[in-house]
Nucleic acid binder design. Structure first.
Length: 479
DNA sequence: ATGTGC
């Protein structure tokens, strides 16, 4: 997007002994004196120039090396690659041994996607659209939702994620979930990545959310959050892989519900705390790295590495339950409005998380795990198709795939110029966006994003994923 | 990402 900046960056990288080449849709940054080993690689479709700032951030991330020991074995980026605020680009994947990098996940711990389908035609849905939308607006925007739960349930949630929380809820159901089928929720945890359960520690959660006695009335649970987060009603537009779609319970013409959200303020709290801790334990006699990205080394601080991973898992557990509850409110309202409608879970997948893989860890920031057979959910903008995919496990891209289309225009740009552009220019013609904030609708307009089709195609061509089904948007809730 | 900041 910034050819001048890019030229300057390439010259600067050259001075550091780094070469950038473009071949087979992939930008590769290599050490000039060892051209066989790429420092970092970015997959981009034809016609999408690389952003200098994002490439610089990826090169910085690839160079993170704790002085006490630890290395980055591989760094790469998916085609939705764009600059991030905290010095780490969105769409970065980094494989580390002997160190973990808290800021490579950042604040939005266990941001991810959840997909449900329902046997309801688009005509049946639209016939009662207004009533349904009003109820969801109440839950998502006006706080009519009731997610009250016991301190014990919150502790179990942070400690064990979905299954632990469900046990506590079965023991003492509270709030809206009283009307849910908790048995169905238990069976569905198979369709959540890692069963929706990581090794957390409730003592690492924000104190006010884990009382020993009494109830937590809200805790921020079942809220969508800002930015690119959303809840979207969709239609299964086209099935490409009948075998997998059938196995996953997906059929053409079904209604679908896609949820994009994360661990909200809990992730912000834990991500921020550990970014600061990693900085605080940087060796006193050494200057800070220019990138301001601080790893934790297993050699010098094994206990901090372990507790960071447990803290990240604690926030991740909250993220799983947050998406589950956003979906549960949808299902409750769906049954009220449309009667006897089932809306089974297809899959729930994080795209912002550290996972033990190989000899160390893989940290994905805005990138899906896409190992062989893994269901992968990739949303387009609110005016474009979204995709249900299956992973093919390409090790060249750390068994990963993009988490969306990726921004091409900044929020700042849309805020400044968007209001004076036409609906057609913004790509908003025919888009049914439900929000209380007009500026959000413009910031997140389809024109802010890359065309999803080329982002999907380049990843299929690279052997990272295959399409299972294509979903078209019906209406989108944006907080 | 964040009831935020260009």
């Amino acid at each position: 997007m910034q050819p001048k900046n890019l030229k300057r960056l390439l010259r600067a990288l050259g001075r550091q002994g780094l070469d950038v080449t473009y071949n087979n849709h992939t930008y590769s940054v290599r050490l000039a004196n060892s051209p066989d080993f790429p420092v970092a690689e970015v997959l981009l479709p034809e016609g999408f120039p690389i952003e200098a700032k994002a490439l610089k951030q990826l090169t910085n991330l690839a160079s993170v090396r704790h002085p006490s020991g630890g290395c980055v074995c591989r760094a790469c980026a998916t085609p939705d690659f764009h600059p991030g605020d905290a010095g780490v680009a969105i769409g970065s994947v980094v494989e580390t041994v002997g160190q973990v990098i808290p800021s490579a996940v950042g604040s939005d711990i266990n941001c991810g996607m959840r997909l449900h389908v329902a046997d309801l035609t688009i005509e049946q849905f639209l016939a009662k659209r207004d009533e349904f939308v009003e109820r969801m607006k109440g839950d998502y925007f006006f706080g009519t939702r009731d997610v009250t739960m016991t301190g014990q349930a919150m502790q179990a949630l942070f400690q064990y994620g979905v299954p632990g929380w469900l046990d506590a809820m079965l023991d003492r159901p509270t709030g809206s979930v009283v009307k849910s089928d908790l048995q169905q929720l238990a069976e569905e945890s198979d369709a959540i990545f890692l069963g929706g359960s990581m090794d957390g520690d409730w003592k690492l959660a924000p104190e006010e959310l884990v009382p020993d006695a009494g109830l937590v009335r809200d805790g921020g649970l079942a809220t969508i959050g800002g930015g690119n987060h959303f809840v979207e009603v969709q239609r299964i537009d086209k099935v490409e892989n009948r075998t997998l779609a059938h196995a996953w319970g997906v059929r053409e013409g079904q209604l679908a519900f896609m949820i994009h959200s994360g661990s909200r303020n809990v992730g912000k709290y834990i991500g921020g705390m550990w970014r600061d801790k990693a900085k605080a334990v940087w060796p006193k006699n050494l200057k800070y790295p220019d990138s301001q990205i601080f790893p934790l080394s297993t050699s010098s601080h094994p206990e901090l590495v372990a507790s960071y991973l447990q803290a990240e898992a604690t926030a991740a557990n909250y993220g799983f339950v947050n998406r589950l509850l956003l979906a549960e409110l949808l299902r409750l309202r769906l049954r009220e409005v449309y009667k006897d409608v089932e809306a089974p879970l297809v899959y729930d997948l994080p795209h912002n998380i550290t996972l033990p893989e190989g000899e160390g860890w893989v940290t994905r920031k805005g990138a899906c795990p896409a190992h062989v057979g893994q269901p992968v959910i990739i949303p387009g903008s609110m005016g474009a198709y979204s995709y249900l995919m299956v992973g093919r496990g390409n090790p060249a891209f750390c068994n990963s795939a993009s988490h969306g289309a990726g921004r091409i225009r900044s929020r700042f740009d849309l805020n400044r110029r968007g209001a004076s552009e036409s609906e057609a220019e913004l790509g908003l013609t025919g888009v049914d966006c439900i929000t209380l904030r007009e500026e959000r609708r413009i910031e997140e307009a389809p024109a802010a994003y890359k065309p999803i089709q080329s982002v999907i195609d380049v990843q299929v061509a690279a052997g990272m994923v295959d399409v299972v089904a294509r979903l078209s948007p019906v209406l989108t809730f944006k907080a």
